[in-house]
Design a protein around this nucleic acid. Sequence first.
DNA 1: AACTAAGCCAACCGCAGCCAA
DNA 2: ATTGGCTGCGGTTGGCTTAGT
Length: 313
Amino acid sequence: MGRQPCCDKVGLKKGPWTAEEDKKLINFIRTNGQCCWRAVPKLAGLLRCGKSCRLRWTNYLRPDLKRGLLSESEEKMVIDLHAQLGNRWSKIASHLPGRTDNEIKNHWNTHIKKKLRKMGIDPLTHKPLPTPTTIPSPENDQDCGIEPPPPPPATESEQSKEVVEVVDTPLQSTITESKDGDKNRATSPFDSMDVNNDFVNNDFCIDEIPVIEPHEILMPCENPSPSPSSSSSSASATAPTSSSGGSFSSNLLEDLEFATTFDYNEILSSIWDDDFTSSLDVYNTDGITVEPLLMQFPLMVSDDESWKFDSIM
DNA sequence: AACTAAGCCAACCGCAGCCAA
DNA sequence: ATTGGCTGCGGTTGGCTTAGT
């Protein structure tokens, strides 16, 4: 049965989201909540398909998102979970509050894969790579787009199945899953690894970027830099750049009436409904309940300029 | 300073699964 | 049991940024 396209693509906008679009989407979800993504663009006045709106919201605009590089512990968790679950990014993301599947997938492909290879571990199987004497390294470099020959080709599902079912390989984490989905972590791939052990213990860096401490990311906004007149639509009205993310441009912030000195919860309550924010208080991920996110991450910022509320007001 | 290559990430595409009619 | 609509997921790509020459 032929599937209809998810939306009529004629006249629909694609590509990076503008601050104006973000604003519309936030305002819509703020007043209506998340429902019927197909209807969202029409109701919110957006020339986007529902899918695009959902993606933008879940990957960028959600208030509970934790931005910035993954911490060391998060990376290790991703590796452990990947050993168990394979490329089931959404499942993996469900164990990392504030992280999206897309973010984890990107981080895996750009950072973790390389690190694992450096450590002599096949990122696909989480088993030791063949020694360089057996396979010439340039051809073996998957970054060149050349996957190594056997280990035998397995489909995505086969690969996942294999990883989940075969649990007593040397580097395999032994996470046992109870019926209610709880994961009891026993050993990590790193525990049994003595190859490059110093790397594991000392050099498993997060790209030399320190983890941002809460006191570092809470910005008092006492020093509003003399930004160009906010009424000027020149720079702030343009679409967000990829580096800045741009989900909160100065225009958007103006429109949402952010205060120059703010309390994050205040901001949240001004942007999102009480019902909505309260739904974030407890985040249950497959049996793992974490601290209420808004308490855990009073203000989640990163190198991302867009989160520096103070400097752009 | 200019050019090129590599890295990175937001967004798109298409399929799978779920569910209601 | 079948059909059709919707959402979620994973793979892929386009374009911007950064590093190297």
